[in-house]
Amino acid sequence: MASIDLKGVRKVYQGNVTAIHALDLSIADGELVVLVGPSGCGKSTLLRMIAGLETITDGTISIGEDVVNKKEPAERDIAMVFQNYALYPHMSVRQNLEYGLKNRGTPRDEIDRRVNEAARILEITPFLDRKPRQLSGGQRQRVAMGRAIVRQPKAFLFDEPLSNLDAKLRGQMRIEIRRLQRSLKTTSVYVTHDQLEAMTLADRLVVMNGGRIEQVGKPIELYDKPASLFVAGFIGSPPMNLLPIAALQAIAGGTMPNLPTGTDIVGIRPDEVVVGSGEGIALSGTVELIEPVGGESHLYVRVEGLDQTLILVQQGRASVGEADKVDFVLPLAALHGFNKESGLRVD
């Protein structure tokens, strides 16, 4: 177990493509940090740099007390879970679990003890003598996790481990990973593009965009106080409505709030919009589409004078139908202010 420290880490690919711009990040011992961002944001590259599968152009990465820049993946004492599991197809599950330990010269009885222990925790004991191709996706996923656990490494690195599973299994495995990480207390870095997965798993969430960190913090902090337009749009589903203040001012009757200077875009979470009347900026529009999700309904509303559709969330069933007029209010307390040019939050 160890902390992971990244100082001024940069990655420049051949042809001067910068994948990671001087990035600092400290991951505490036992913490589960999730790197999230759209594809191409550099999250996987960063993970692979920590693993030692990509070289580091600049800066230092240390695991525990050691700077590991020049170390081979095996010497870094980390374990990695891959998106496609990367199980060795010709080896049985047991051999898959053992392989890393054998290469390290672990004594036989210790190997057996650890493999049996990991198999018990992950409930894969009945499959130990099967080949990976005889297992289902979820079972393979468990074996891949088992391969990481038996090593008892300083850190787990997860590279989108659940993307190949169906939605239901993904939910189950998510809970399982969380529980496992809590009980083993192993420092973990988890890469995903699924913001729901990121929100629910993370002790701390790192939102990345274009090779830079946009914001780091507890998931709920990021949800409540997104530091930039990008984070505001990325975290939360359905995404936050981001409206230019000038257009809003032109169409909204009633009072405009006193927003801090520099604010030219306001954001509001779809579930904070109040359908009907009340305190705040009153608007009305036409419902274009209703998505009944079950417990709540998502309304896509077109407002005259705004060139984008607003998303409203109503608890339970929608009170209006498609093509109906709807009045709604943006409560002032729920507004987030942003500056368009810098892309940052204004408080």
Binding site: A51, L53, P73, A74, I78, M80, N84, Y88, Y99, N103
Partner: peptide, 13 residues
């Protein structure tokens, strides 16, 4: 898949 080789590297092969 490349991951096979990477997994082996992480496994100390």
């Amino acid at each position: 898949p490349d991951e096979m080789m990477e997994a082996a590297r992480v496994d100390g092969a």
